[in-house]
Design a protein around this nucleic acid. Structure first.
Lengths: 219, 219
DNA sequence: GCGTACATTTCGGCC
DNA sequence: GGCCGAAGTGTACGC
């Protein structure tokens, strides 16, 4: 990893055209060849960047970064305040917990939290427009499509609505009911879901995990 | 801006729980207080971060970054290879060209590309649920709502559908037709649009700009 | 401050 | 490689 602090101007020509007037900035060159230009605010997003794979050509204070698609980042260096290189090695990577996939696993494994007699048909039930998170049956044997989100918002309800519309065209499955399940459901999403006859369920992640842990302890 | 290269481990507890095992990394502390932890690959995204506004508490090689929502980033420093601070000042910012707003301007100024006799009612036509990109009339005088995207995908069709539903409740406007206009339209989005009676138009950005340039040259 | 729409979104998964 | 959906999305803008 190479860190350069320099007064520079930057031009990007690719998916759009953009220009950065001359100012002091951090230029980050990573070992995969990628380049990012950062200002001194906003942690996350570089002002300009080029994602790998790409090549860096350096001549005379003029850096040209280019990728296969022909996108170009041209950095003109005017005054270099720091130029420091470090060997970091390969990162062991991030270990995540609590994402949607895990919620799906937990719920699929514990359908009874939705009601007595509910049973899983399958997870990631494939349709022409994408996979339904969970397809199951309620106590009466009615097919139910479940959409799971960490945060339940309007677009999640829209997604489930599209699936329901499609699934209900299948005479082997119809009628199919909908359940919108999330750790937190925004009021507007709840209103839209109710308006469309979709039930909302708030999932307790720690609770589900706890049940799962208890289950594991039994065996 | 403060640059620290150090062997460190990182724990994040907030919207999810995540852990980074000990390894050499770059820690970027910006003047707005934000913190980002970068590995030596992937230009764009930090491994872990905390967006501003947030506070950094430093004691004994243990950094605690916290925001108002109570999300926490804990960085444990083990071996510091570089610790370098720089005053960069406020960045003049990026100048962009080619984004959706520009497409909207160009199309509004050249409605005839959609058909002879089409005329603009107004751009950014305000409704209770947000602004319609362009409201216009076709040759027959029928009201048309246009949604413009750089890349036309399903959520854009959903958005236009919501607008059409609302606009068609207004007896002064109804019936309102829909046009989905984008530089590129994904097949699934096109299918959904057609299914809902929405026309799709592929916009030629350079073409539109060329027409505009020709127009300018005439005057 | 909340809600909505945009982003050179990036990123991962699957076909 | 393209398409699709998720992201700790982040970020700007309007109300």
């Amino acid at each position: 990893m190479r860190l350069v602090i320099a007064r520079c101007s930057v031009d990007y020509a690719g998916r759009l055209t953009a220009h950065l007037p001359s100012a002091p900035r951090l230029i980050l060159v990573k070992s995969d060849g990628s380049v990012a230009v950062h200002s001194d605010d906003r942690a996350y997003k570089p002002l300009n960047w080029m994602s790998p794979p790409c090549t860096l050509k350096e001549e005379d204070g003029r850096w040209t970064v280019e990728n296969k698609a022909g996108e170009k980042l041209i950095i003109t260096l005017e005054e270099v305040m720091l130029d420091s290189s470090h060997e970091l090695g390969v990162d062991p990577g991030l270990i995540k917990d609590g994402v949607e996939a895990h919620l799906q696993e937990l719920l699929a494994d514990r359908m009874e939290v939705l009601g007595e007699g509910w049973s899983l048909i399958r997870r990631e039930y494939m349709t022409a427009i994408g996979p339904v998170d969970i397809l199951c049956r309620d106590a009466e044997g009615t097919t139910v499509a479940i959409e799971i989100k960490r945060r339940g918002e309007i677009d999640g309800v829209e997604q489930l609505t599209r699936y329901l519309e499609l699934l209900n065209r299948d005479p082997l499955l119809a009628p199919v009911k909908g359940v919108f399940a999330a750790q937190q459901i925004k009021p507007q999403a709840r209103v839209l879901a109710n308006d469309r006859g979709i039930d909302c369920v708030v999932l307790d992640y720690d609770g589900l995990r706890g049940i799962e842990d208890d289950k594991l302890k039994l065996f």
